[in-house]
Write a protein that binds this DNA or RNA. Structure first.
Length: 405
RNA sequence: GGGGAGAUUCCAGAGCGGCCAAAUGGGGCAGACUGUAAAUCUGUUGUCUUUCGACUUCGCAGGUUCGAAUCCUGCUCUCCCCA
């Protein structure tokens, strides 16, 4: 096993793909060389925050990088940040987040890992919970740890300095987060820590703490923050510009298509396994023929998570419903009682296509609702169904349901 | 410890004691258009109600008033300045 490491330059080529910065790259090189000689894999650390259990393609960028390290034969460690979560989220500003119970955190952590397993080699991933070592530290330990950092350095951090100049509150304990994360690196003796560019500060703190205690400092590897489907902000659930890993094939395909054209290349580079040598060609195609390039992208992404068959189906579904404004082959069904008079508006709400009757009414008034292809604008519309009937209710552009008698 | 400013609907941010469910922008949703769920344009955006209207909402709790997001009192939280 130990002698199967690729030559260092080849490893570096894989590692470099998509990275923004490797600090310091020379040191990584020598670590790789040593590892290759000794046959000892590098310890690659990635921390995750189990507050939000829904992973999207933005997370996948970094998880894929971890996977690449795995494929190169290195040891992946996934830290579930249960301890840090238990205390609260540092970037939560003044929102008092309801502290999650340990059970919830555990559950989220498991759900996180389950989703991450679609990308990682789960068998070869070491999962650790940082409460294990952070939770046993005493106050004196914490103060000692805090002594490694100065306020001035803390305020260098981008989000802190922004909040500070914007007169937004910063709680003292938030300063401890980078230290806690750094302590993880010390505890795990990590060789490399992965993170988004927004993690640069935290990763460097880990590096410094390791140095301070006489460990070989970790390499910090930063991946770009994936820009979301809106083309401007980073992909995030709260901006609603995300494509979820667990998302159904149709949504995944459709959302992938909605990205701005100039993101096509980036998505191929960061989210797919398309060979690195192919990327320049794809960049060219994205310019010449963005429509097809984007369909290729959407297909590739959907295929990665759902398989080829589902990806094909998703493409057909998209063409049928969005391009040709038809109705899809498959849609959920909803049984209605034969002979009963149904009011359209409450029905839309009951099905869950609108959160309130008022919203449902608005949809009807604005021409967003059709029954069997006929747009219905009468807010009083009532109908009943017969045995064996199938009525297709369409709400908005892409919500379909088959009403059956 | 002292002084000052502030807390408004998803976010930002207006708001004269009645015409405020609350300007404006962003976001969301819908329609048109489009290769796209992009861009652009239009409409819409508390809940219930076909309409009229009713109800809940402007940090929390009380109070003044025929009537309060707007006035008063207390509380909680945040920011700034000084120490």
């Amino acid at each position: 096993m130990s002698s199967t490491f690729l030559p260092v330059e080849e490893q570096l080529a894989v590692i470099r793909r998509g990275t923004v910065e490797i600090i310091p790259e020379e040191e990584l090189k020598s670590k790789l060389e040593k590892s290759r000689q000794s046959g000892k894999p590098l310890r690659i650390k990635l921390g995750c925050d189990p507050t939000r259990p829904d992973l999207h393609l933005g997370h996948s960028v970094i998880l894929r990088k971890l996977r690449q390290f795995q494929d190169l034969g290195h040891h992946a460690i996934l830290i579930i940040g249960d301890f840090t979560t238990l205390i609260g989220d540092p970037t939560g500003q003044n929102k008092t987040r309801p502290a999650l119970t340990p059970e919830e955190i555990k559950k989220n952590g498991e759900s996180y890992f389950k989703q991450a397993s679609k990308i990682l080699d789960a068998e070869k991933t070491e999962i650790v919970y940082n409460s294990e070592w952070l939770g046993t530290m005493g106050f004196a330990d914490v103060i000692k740890l805090a002594g490694h950092m100065t306020v001035a350095r803390m305020l260098e951090r981008d989000d802190f300095s922004k909040r500070y100049t914007n007169n937004e509150p910063i709680s003292l304990h938030e300063f401890l987060y980078p230290l806690a994360q750094g302590q993880d690196s010390v505890h795990l003796k990590s060789d490399v820590e992965l993170g988004g560019t927004d993690q640069k500060f935290n990763l460097l703190v880990g590096r410094q703490l390791q140095k301070d205690v006489g460990q070989a400092p970790q390499i910090c590897l930063m991946m770009p923050l994936l820009v979301g489907t809106d083309g401007t902000q980073k992909m995030s659930k709260s901006y609603d510009n995300y494509i979820g890993i667990d998302e159904n094939p149709n949504d995944m395909y459709g959302k992938s298509l909605s990205i701005p054209d100039d993101l096509i290349y980036t998505y191929f580079e960061l989210l797919t396994d398309v060979a690195t040598e192919e990327l320049p060609k794809l960049a060219e195609k994205a310019k010449q023929d963005p429509r097809n390039a984007k369909h290729d992208l959407a297909f590739t992404i959907t295929k990665m998570y759902h398989g080829e068959e589902a990806a094909n189906a998703a493409r057909e579904h998209f063409e049928k419903t969005i391009i040709n404004k038809g109705i899809p082959d498959d849609m959920p069904e909803h049984k209605l009682n034969v002979g009963e008079e149904y009011q359209l508006i409450p029905l839309i709400k009951d099905i869950g296509f609108a959160p309130s009757n008022g919203e449902a009414r608005r949809l009807v008034q604005q021409g967003g609702v059709s029954l069997n292809g006929e747009t219905i604008t009468d807010t009083n519309f009532m109908f009943s169904i017969h045995t064996g009937d199938e009525l297709v209710l369409k709400v908005g552009k892409r919500k379909f349901i088959k009403l059956i008698g």
